[in-house]
Amino acid sequence: MATVSRRDFLKLTAIGAGAIGVSELGFDMAHAYEVRQQLRIAGATESHSICPYCAVGCSLIAYTRKNADGSTALLQIEGDPDSPVNEGRLCPKGATAMELANSNRRVEQPKYRAPGASDWQTVSWDFVLDKVAQHIKDSRDRTFVTKDHDGKVVNRCDGIAFAGGAAFSNEEGYFASKVLRSLGLVYLEQQARV
């Protein structure tokens, strides 16, 4: 190693590596380049999820890919092998969670059925939100009790009930709990009881 200094040589190889169709150690890369050109490679993202079905809480790995049109495709769901709960296993339901996530049976637009009507109408979000807000206000104002028969302050709404929440995240449940109670709702229920 006399002619070129060690440091210079390191620089040289770093720059020249792979640039001349021959690898660092001298393997011919031509064929590999050719194959590389034919390869269609796709980038995917792995994300963490939790199974949407029972309360065991199996961890999932979800693979997604951004399509050229900007949409995201879900490629696969499998068990997360690191989880102390499921250690990579899934049951038949969890293993088909894909289908729940990628369903053409979803409701994709708000729908409205007028009293006595025999069909749904597809409507806008503004339409339903305005109408529901007005309903909540009217029903609340009609059924709100400030003081009960004994004159005790109760500040509650007796005519509106809410039930749900076993399928959405904690933070959504907390938010629903907070907002609904600010309206004075007391008829609040969840799947836990039924």
């Binding site: 309360a55 708000p110 339903v128 529901v132 399928a167 995240s169 904690n170």
Partner: peptide, 27 residues
């Protein structure tokens, strides 16, 4: 349907894989 005077709204909600947040399991 004609006899049912209830006004019905179906609001399309996202489901679990379309949002983040925590699930608390039974343990």
């Amino acid at each position: 349907p004609a006899a049912v005077q209830t006004e019905v709204f179906l609001l399309p909600a996202t489901h679990w894989i379309e949002k983040d947040g925590a699930f608390t399991n039974s343990g």
